[in-house]
């Protein structure tokens, strides 16, 4: 079985983002970029599945500008076998991403696609579910554990009420939650090896997908700031303020 892992390049999760004054977006010039943390977990999971002998090949796919090659190389260094960059400078929205991934899947025929549950820039949490629907595949979103069974997968999902386990047939789309695994550190020799692994470049046109957005972003603003608070000296002052000033207890 092949596994496809779509990965996204985003502003690093440690960066405090700044909104541009003109409302056109957030500042990305000279800002550290990296692989979306949930996608790293997806890569790690795929590599573990291959190491356990349950998959033969792992293909990492990124959609975006040329710079996405850096995260694809990271995925290759973590253990992916080959990478595909679908190159475009347009900001592609989840439905079109899902269509591009579907077209890629139709060419590559993997038995499993593992995506991050959400990209931490747009916080959409849509692409995996959309891809699964377009393919007519089964879906296990927000996975914190994946087991192979005779008939498919048993996946534990992190849901609002706790943990839910479902059994799904393959082929399937799984999206990762944070506790699925802890991604490995990439070792230097593997980075060297990754340079020699194949990285193909394609365009949305070649895949026959229209990437024009259906949702316009009118503007992006700073969230309203909270008024500065005060430090209290001790627990008694705290309780007094909560009761008599804030009136919340």
């Amino acid at each position: 079985m092949k596994i496809l892992i779509p990965i996204k390049r985003v502003i690093d999760f440690n960066v405090r983002i700044r909104v541009k004054k003109d409302g056109s977006g957030v500042e990305t010039a000279n800002v550290k970029m990296s692989m979306n943390p949930f996608c790293e977990i997806a890569v790690e999971e795929a590599v573990r599945i291959k190491e356990a002998g349950k998959a033969e090949e792992i293909i990492a796919v990124a959609i975006g500008g040329r710079q996405c090659q850096d995260i694809l190389r990271t995925a290759l260094a973590m253990g992916a076998d080959r990478a595909i960059l679908i190159e475009t400078d347009v900001e592609v929205q989840p439905l079109a991403i899902a269509k591009l991934l579907k077209a890629t899947i139709e060419k590559e025929s993997p038995g499993l696609a593992i995506l991050g549950k959400q990209a931490i820039d747009g916080d959409n949490n849509q692409t995996g579910q959309m891809l699964s629907a377009l393919l007519g595949w089964s879906q296990a979103a927000f996975a914190s554990n994946i087991e192979f069974t005779d008939t498919g997968l048993e996946v534990t999902r992190e849901v609002d009420g706790g943990l839910e386990t479902i059994a799904i047939k393959l082929p399937a789309v799984v999206t990762t939650d944070l506790r699925l695994n802890e991604p490995r550190y990439v070792k230097l020799p593997n980075i060297m090896k990754a340079r020699k692994k194949p990285l193909d470049v394609m365009t949305p046109q070649e895949l026959g997908v229209d990437v024009a957005p259906s949702i316009d972003v009118l503007d992006i603003a700073e969230p309203p700031a909270r008024a500065a608070g005060v430090k209290v000296a001790d627990v008694n002052e705290l309780v007094d303020k909560l009761r008599n000033e804030a009136k919340v207890i």
């Binding site: 439905l95 849509q126 959309m130 699964s132 629907a133 999902r157 259906s214």
Partner: peptide, 23 residues
Amino acid sequence: GGTFGKNLLPRVAALLDVGMVSD
């Protein structure tokens, strides 16, 4: 917009061939 809606709505949107607005 909890895990219930996040699990379900993107699938609905994809089958209707429309985008989705989250949260």
